[in-house]
Design a protein around this nucleic acid. Structure first.
Lengths: 197, 197
DNA sequence: ACCTGAACACCGTTCAAGT
DNA sequence: ACCTGAACACCGTTCAAGT
């Protein structure tokens, strides 16, 4: 027995940790500037690492984007939990959706990656995206119990509608200017009971 | 005077016409299979033309995609006009939106190009996309006059919402399965008057 | 362990050379 | 006029060679 568990891999080297952090930081900035189809070579250059280093830390482009998204999912899940504790049902839901959509604007082009995680159980994001959606679904349920949202809507419906509006609002300035209006049209609509017949 | 107007360019050669048609036909099939990011080399290969020929007819990738979309825009504009003449307001609008969304599924990834034409006046699609939206807007107006849709929605709002749902439904199978439900949620919502308060 | 950068197989786009 | 395919400057990804 040496004090180090032989099963657990030893701690990464200091330079590896530093490089990983640099790459993530640069990737976040570059994606915010150029969108999700930004050049990985460009990211490696600006992070001042070789291409091989980038690939050692993130085995594929998707893995790098996923690392960017995970933070956001975890943040939104936590935010939902806090709102559930602190705010009345309808207000909590509205505030959370606002946070969801406003954040999405900074992740240009990542909406596609986000949607892909829903069905891809092998994705390392599958779990954290699911946790975020579950947290949102709880806010939705509370709002439905309070009669603020029609009952035939579930968490995935809500996620899809809000994701769809976030995406379209990122497409072109004329529509971006209507983001809030489009959002309101949807939420107003969901507040009414389903039509009978 | 020779009988040919010197200003008007002469008719294209027969091989040029044939190649253009082949490229378009192949591009349509390939985009349907692989989406809008399909390889142009692949399209040229399958159309059995050189890369230069593809570029002679479509000076950029965007131009080729636009040629595919234009047909669709023109078709939808005509369809709207026919429905306006033949059907009661609410039914005409619903049927047109159904045609719009169901067709979009075959144009995987082209939604982004479609949205881009709204603000880009230099795009050759700007006009035909605008004409299609105008035709849809007339159906919307009729439905609003009949009291079937809340009045604070315009043609661009409707286009954005329907485009957004079409896009999201193309992203992943789980959501694709809910396409009709999501669509119904939005249209139900638009049927109610704006909330006062 | 980890890093580097050249190498590979692609891509979109251009252009000299052919008919 | 129109077509061809090689050439160019990129890209994502891999891998032998270094420390």
């Amino acid at each position: 027995m040496t004090g180090t568990d032989p099963v657990r891999p030893r701690a990464p080297r200091a330079d590896a940790l530093r490089n990983r952090a640099r790459i993530l930081e640069v990737a976040r900035a570059v994606v915010e500037e150029q969108g999700a189809q930004a050049s990985l070579r460009d990211i490696a250059r600006r992070a001042e690492v070789g291409m091989g280093t980038l690939y050692r830390h993130f085995a594929t482009r998707e893995e790098l984007l996923e690392a960017l998204l995970r933070r956001r999912f975890d943040h939104l899940a936590g935010h939902a939990a806090a709102l559930e504790a602190d705010r009345p049902p309808a207000e909590a839901l509205a505030e959370w959706l606002r946070a969801f959509t406003s954040g999405t604007a900074a992740y240009r082009g990542l909406a596609t990656s986000m949607m892909a995680t829903i069905d891809d159980e092998s994705s390392p994001l599958h779990a954290s995206c699911g946790a975020m959606r579950a947290a949102g679904a709880r806010l939705l349920r509370r709002a439905q119990d309070a009669g603020a949202v029609r009952p035939d809507v579930d968490g995935l419906d809500l996620f899809a509608l809000v994701g769809a509006v976030s995406w379209i609002a990122d497409q072109t300035p004329t529509i971006a200017a209507r983001r809030d209006h489009l959002f309101a049209l949807i939420m107003d609509g969901l507040a009414h009971p389903a039509p009978t017949g």
